[in-house]
Every structure is written in structure tokens, then in C-alpha cells.
Simulated assay, not measured.
Amino acid sequence: MPNSYFQFKQFRVEQDRCAMKVCTDSCVFGAYVEVGKAQRILDIGTGTGLLALMVAQRSGASIDAVEINAEAQQQAQENFTASPWADRLHLHPMPLQAYAQQQLPKYDVILSNPPFFLSSLKSADAAKNTAKHTGELLFEDILYFAQQRLTQHGKLYLLLPPAEALYFAGLAKASVLYLAEVLQVYTYHGGKCIRHIQTYTYTPVTAPEVKDFFIREADKTTYTSEFRQLLQPYYLYL
């Protein structure tokens, strides 16, 4: 059974009321996105608030976070309030579609670990279905919002399984956003690719730069040096 919280070096994520718990690939995502110069950041589907907290730690940006689930909203707000960056973290308890109807700023960075299972069998757990399956939040909604609300040099970052990442990339071809980079995340050297971290920009590219990232060595136990370097600012024991 997962812990009721996950302790990082500078903040804690309480997660007992959220369907989706802190996981390694989400931590890789939160540590990977470039946010150093960003002034405004949006986290779509914040859940526990993990990604918003991670980017708050290494930026001075004002961060908005959208969440549809009532229990996740409450937990994210509590996590934000308890963090050192409470004054820069702003929760919006509503679906993205409703948020998009408001008078909004432009964002330098939009990031999302969205519901992603397009065709797999659903769980009996309704909250987990909302968190993991496209239904309440469609890929088209994220793409359209990003087209309207990214700054000229802004970036959209997504964390998706490989099949769903390819599907999203196909949708994006009809938009003004271009897939600039793909980080393929593997469980270990010799293991399978579990996630793609995609970077979209307005800058036209003929083909995205594709890189591999391994969480563990071939022994399936030891963290790789690249993982240690990336997560060292966050994980207690790195």
C-alpha cells in the first residue's frame, strides 16, 4: 500500500485522498521540464500538486494549477499551503474547459501528465478512471488551450505512454505547435520504454530530437547517474 505522503527535500506531498500517487516517471517529468526563465506556468490536471511543487522549487514563476476532482483539489491546496512557495501556487478547482473561458494570461510553460488510456479497460474505481482515462479531459482540449495560451517562445510539455504520445503528436500536426523533442523514459537499461516526455513549441522542426533516459541500471536496482543527477535536488537519499 502506498504511503500517505511522499517526502522530498524541500516539501511534502500528502496523497492519501488522491487516486494517482507520486510515481517515479512523474518525478522525472517534473525535474526535466525547463522552467528557469518562466514567469507564468500552468499545470493541467495537478492531482496532488506534485508537478506544480517541483517546478516551484526551481523557478520564481507564478504557477496556476487546474484540477477537476474534488478530493484532489483539497489535497493539492493543502500541499501548496504547506510548501515554501504558497504565495506563488494558485489552485483553480475546475475543468480545463471552464478555466479556458476566463480572462487568462499567456503562459511560458504549460505542462500536463494528463489522463492517458485511450482504449484500455477501465477500473472499477471512478476516481482512478478520471485520473487515468481520457474522458473528462481530452487531448484536443489540451492542444487547443496551448495554441491559445502559450507565449511566442513558450513550451508545452506532456508525459504520456508511447502509444498515446504518438496519437497526440498526430493531433498536433494539424496545429501551429511542433513536436521539438522526445525524451524516451525506460525503466532500466534493457527494459521497456514506459513514457515519452514530449516538448512542443511554435518553432517549425522537420523532426523532433529523440533522446533516451534510463531510470535504473541493467541490474534493475541501481539508479543511473543521469537519474541521480536529475532528481538529486528533490529526493532525500540522492
Rank of each mutant, 00 (worst) to 15 (best):
N79F: 02
S175W: 10
R40M: 03
W85Y: 11
L118I: 13
L150R: 08
Y223I: 04
K132V: 08
E34D: 13
L42H: 01
L143R: 09
P93S: 09
A82Q: 14
P93G: 02
P84R: 02
M54G: 01
E67G: 00
K37W: 10
M54I: 01
S112I: 00
D141K: 03
L183N: 05
L51R: 01
Q97G: 02
L91Q: 05
Q101G: 00
N3H: 14
A126T: 06
T221R: 14
S59Y: 00
D25L: 12
S4F: 12
V210S: 06
L89T: 02
L171K: 08
Y234N: 06
D212S: 12
Y237T: 07
N69K: 01
A82S: 13
T134E: 15
E217D: 07
Q229K: 12
Q184A: 14
L138E: 15
H90D: 04
E136W: 14
T203A: 10
A180K: 08
E71L: 15
Y167P: 00
P204C: 06
Y186S: 02
L104H: 03
Y223R: 06
L96G: 03
K37G: 02
Y234F: 11
F168Y: 13
V13L: 09
A172I: 00
E14W: 10
Y234L: 11
Y157V: 01
G154N: 06
F213S: 06
A163D: 15
A163K: 12
